[in-house]
Design a protein around this nucleic acid. Structure first.
Lengths: 122, 122, 122, 122
DNA sequence: GTGGTCTAGACCACG
DNA sequence: GTGGTCTAGACCACG
């Protein structure tokens, strides 16, 4: 899996890494049980600080997306907890995005198409 | 219009104000041409600094959502420019939200319903 | 002569009036010796405060573009002083505009064409 | 790069900083990718508040001229977006400048020479 | 009365 | 060490 940092973005690097791994798990780029690169390897590959990668992994672990053990490093969890609802923060954020899109003249169907694309046929 | 700040959020206060006004314009709580509270009044009401409110208003102004003049204060623009497409940042953010929702077991239809609700019947 | 206020502009109203009169004199819309509307009449017509119009006229008078007498009101001066050089402020402002245009990819010739258009064939 | 503030100017300090950096980028004083002084350093050097410098940098960032990250500070963007046209505000401002110059007796060719000088041979 | 600018100073997350 | 946020308070031009 290739992780790309948008250096123009205001989103912190560790968050961008975390987000891309979550999106990778959702869209199937990262399979359940799949091994993630080590903190060192990823940091080296991306030319960033190991602390930054570590922070991303720690958050992913805390959120239940990945698990780590000393032997095998980090792996995608196969049994991610399905709480069944969106966080309030994500709902608000979704409303913000939809509002901005609507005010920009983006048709409702176009947003829905994007949702379907991102969600996938699963 | 009532603006509520989530003090626990890591979204800066001025951004929260900005976001809520954008959402208010989109959902009709704030009508085109409507007066916004003065910088001082809103700051007093919310118990925050005028600079913070001012920053929100200036961003809204720069983005074309509102206009300000020294006589009348700030009001919602009646002719908000419609660029017709979502920003790359918002698309990525939408993908993140959809991915997280999907991994939490939220059905696709539930997200789409939210989009339709936020977009409105217009 | 029709004066239009851009209410989205950050340029103060009295400055906009002053600028448009200067541009009108330069492009011939306002002839030398021509009568300007009274402060009252212009304020009424534009729906603004007489103080604002008065401020514009006072500046124009101070700059030597117009002259006022009690009997005839304000008239365009027929002998505007030709100092022969641009103010430092205007040179800097010109450099800013040219710089922004250049960085936006506007060709040099396009700017020059605008200058020629605004200057006129005179 | 040396930034000089005109204390007599009615252009706000943060705008003057912003303008000089834009002009510096255009005329090559500031190269693509070049580091800008840190907010603190520039504020100290100029004897002004960090907020004022920060405001200039944030505007430059929003306009796409520079990028900032917390590690490296601010630097000139190497791929400034070229919209290809002048803003309406700049066109009006150019007309004002040309009009004033013409009424002062400045020959058209002198203005054009300035434009060519500011634009550079590129 | 209004928004806009600026200061001095503090605290914060990111890296 | 860096930019970003926020406060308390002051002053200003515009209208």
């Amino acid at each position: 899996m290739i992780i790309r940092i948008d250096e123009l973005s205001d989103v912190p690097i560790y968050q961008q890494i975390r987000n891309q791994i979550v999106m990778g798990i959702s869209d199937g780029t990262l399979a359940a049980g799949e091994q993630l690169p080590t903190v060192r390897a990823l940091a080296l590959e991306m030319g960033i600080n190991t602390m930054t990668v570590s922070k991303a992994y720690q958050q992913l672990k805390m959120e239940g997306y990945i698990m780590t053990d000393r032997k095998n490093g980090a792996r995608v969890r196969s049994n991610i907890e399905k709480q069944g609802n969106m966080s309030e923060g994500n709902k608000t954020e979704l409303k913000r995005i939809v509002s901005e899109a609507r005010l920009s003249g983006v048709p409702k169907q176009e947003i829905i198409k994007l949702v379907e694309k991102f969600y996938g046929g699963k």
